[in-house]
Design a protein around this nucleic acid. Structure first.
Length: 571
RNA sequence: CGGAGAGUAGCGCAGUUUGGUAGCGCACCUGGUUUGGGUCCAGGGGGUCGCAGGUUCGAAUCCUGUCUCUCCGACCA
């Protein structure tokens, strides 16, 4: 490609509404342009990258035995009513009507369509297992689209769906996809980690997320420093402290604590560390037969953070997790929020493992302006249930018993699930099995955010000059930068012939043949992030040499003109 | 949904307080100059000042309404 016949569209200045680096660089380097909130046009350079990512994904999916197909973006509402998600999915599902006033949705995902299709096309267990996928535009009407391409409303996703007659077969496909995903991110040249994940609203039991590691990531991931263990912090199990529980030595003592409510104030008043305090949070319990919510008490060590996702999975706690209002607390306990505690509580009490390990601790006394010290579970609290409801923290013991936890940030770019029969059951999708009986299928689903990978790759690979693409997904592999070509016939000749040679050899090359000063070309090529550049200038031409520069390492070297083609093939 | 901020040329911004012919830088066009890291000079094109209504002799500026965009929040007593 020649720059003069291409749409480079680079910008010197950063658009004011771009907050994160990948968004800024995607705009400046001319990869995308915003059309409206969460909607982006992909310019030629951006599309080149997007296509390279998609090609790698496609190749590895095919190698793993998945079969590509394509489903419509617009889907009839009745499929969603059948699966129950017309009601469940909420306002993220964009609903539209056609001219006949029939309801449709813009597909945020395709479980319904594929399940319906497979139900019609597949009739026998002999045709299974099968894994079908597509690479296609999705639409999710996000509450707040942000971070440019990272969380946009319209985006490209690779979604695959596998169908099985038994769990063993599902396990096998799941493993194959897990491996395919590792291969994909390996080939993309990104630093990534598969992590144990919450399956969320999509349902099912087993689930892994694939994260590209980057400071700006929205998710926190807990790693063991000495094993393969990695889990989303949402999910990572926080185990009880390993040291033996201390022997209680104090007796329960009441203290008047006017205006003491926060953990900080409590610590100051009792002159103790927050690790000696049990904090009690009141949340809604599951409603009774009349639909009335009681309250439940969640108890954590003062220095620990509640994990909402773990908490709302507890039997007896209402999901979605809802904190009790000040009035509800007052009504249930007859005291102010800051003095609520687990001792003599009339509510069901769920105690985090670490809080349950406390001895001689401080807590609220369920009496406004009063706290206890010297409290002990064995002697002072009647019935409690010990649960895991806190966020894992840096330095905690790894749940697999090996090493300590480190926490890093990641961008979720892939997610695989074992769905079980959630959709196949709702939509009665099955086949005849070996004994001629109708059998509902087991399903797996496997997603990759293709557009998000582009942004994540930039978050992980950039410097103050611009993007530093990994070779595999760079819009161009190599740039030719001639110095003042319009003034030197010799330079023009060599640049042209080199360009022709590289093109014939199938190299993805950008020939910057614009009549620009060298600085402009260098800056543009570095901003766009082309991994390799060849600089042709009078300076080295007398020695029959041209200069090579590597964008990632900054390494420079002089190359013999005659050997360039062979050399380029080796990089 | 709650809070905060912003809409003036393709991009970045000034002008709004105190109403009086719409500006600057980048980008773009023409000519010259320069040429291994965003040269310099001269000339030029481009804007219903988000939209609608109102006040006024006169509105980017004041008033009312409305739309759009951005950020933060919507767990941790």
């Amino acid at each position: 490609m020649r720059s003069s016949q291409y749409l480079l569209s680079t910008q010197k200045e950063t658009p004011a509404d771009a907050e994160i680096i990948s968004h800024q660089l995607m705009l400046r380097a001319g990869l995308v342009r915003k059309l409206a909130s969460g909607l982006y046009t992909w310019l030629p350079t951006g599309l080149r990258v997007l296509n390279k990512v998609a090609d790698i994904v496609r190749d590895e999916m095919n190698k793993a035995g998945a079969i590509e197909m394509l489903m419509p973006v617009v889907q009839p509402a009745d499929l969603w009513q059948e699966s129950g998600r017309w009601e469940e999915y909420g306002p993220e599902l964009l609903r539209i009507k056609d001219r006949h006033k029939r309801d449709f949705v813009l597909g945020p995902t395709h479980e319904e369509v594929i399940t319906s299709l497979v139900n019609n096309e597949i009739n026998s267990y002999k045709q299974l297992p099968i894994n079908l996928y597509q690479i296609q535009t999705k639409f999710r009407d996000e509450v707040r689209p942000r971070f440019g391409i990272m969380r946009s409303r319209e985006f490209v996703m690779k979604d695959a769906y596998s169908f099985h007659t038994d769990q063993a077969s599902l396990d096998k496909s799941y493993q194959a996809m897990y491996q395919a995903y590792c291969n994909i991110f390996e080939r993309l040249g990104l630093e990534y980690r598969p992590v144990i994940a919450d399956s969320g609203s999509i349902g099912g039991a087993v689930s892994h997320e694939f994260h590209v590691l980057a400071e700006s990531g929205e998710d926190a991931i807990a790693f063991s420093d000495s094993s393969d263990y990695a889990a989303n912090v949402e999910m990572a199990e926080a185990i009880a402290p390993s040291e033996a529980k201390a022997t209680p030595s104090e007796t329960l003592t009441k203290a008047e604590t006017p205006n003491v409510s926060s953990i900080e104030q409590v610590c100051e008043f009792f002159n103790c560390s927050s690790q000696k305090v049990a904090k009690t949070l009141l949340v809604l319990a599951e409603p009774d037969d009349k639909g009335v919510h009681g309250l439940a008490a969640l108890v954590l060590r003062g220095d620990h953070q509640l994990n909402e996702i773990k908490a709302e999975k507890i039997d007896g706690v209402y999901s979605p997790l809802t904190m009790a209002s000040a009035e509800q607390v007052k009504q249930a306990t007859n005291c102010e929020i800051g003095s609520v505690g687990p001792i003599n509580s009339k509510l069901p009490v769920f105690v985090d493992r670490s809080a349950a390990h406390l001895t001689d601790f401080v807590c609220g006394a369920n009496e406004t302006g009063v706290h206890y010290s010297g409290a002990n579970w064995t002697t002072d609290a009647a019935e409690i249930q010990v649960v895991d409801i806190r966020n894992i923290e840096e330095g905690d013991a790894s749940p697999d018993g090996k090493g300590k936890i480190e926490i890093k940030r990641g961008i979720e770019v892939g997610h695989i699930f074992q769905l079980g029969d959630k959709y196949s059951k709702a939509m009665n999708c099955g086949v005849l099995n070996e004994s001629g009986k109708h059998q509902v299928l087991e399903m797996g689903c496997y997603g990759i955010g293709v557009t998000r990978i582009v942004a994540a790759a930039i978050e992980q690979n950039h410097d103050k000059f611009g993007i530093k693409w990994p070779d595999a997904i760079a819009p161009f592999k190599l740039a030719i930068i001639p110095m003042n070509m319009h003034k030197s016939h010799r330079i023009q000749q060599i640049a042209e012939s080199l360009y022709e040679k590289l093109i014939s050899a199938g190299i993805d090359v950008l020939f910057d043949d614009r009549k620009e000063r060298p600085g402009v070309m260098f800056n543009d090529m570095e901003l766009v992030g082309i991994p390799h550049t060849l600089v042709i200038g009078e300076r080295n031409l007398d020695n029959n040499q041209i200069e090579y520069k590597n964008r990632q390492s900054g390494e420079k070297q002089l190359l013999d003109i005659d050997s360039i083609l062979e050399w380029v093939k080796t990089i």
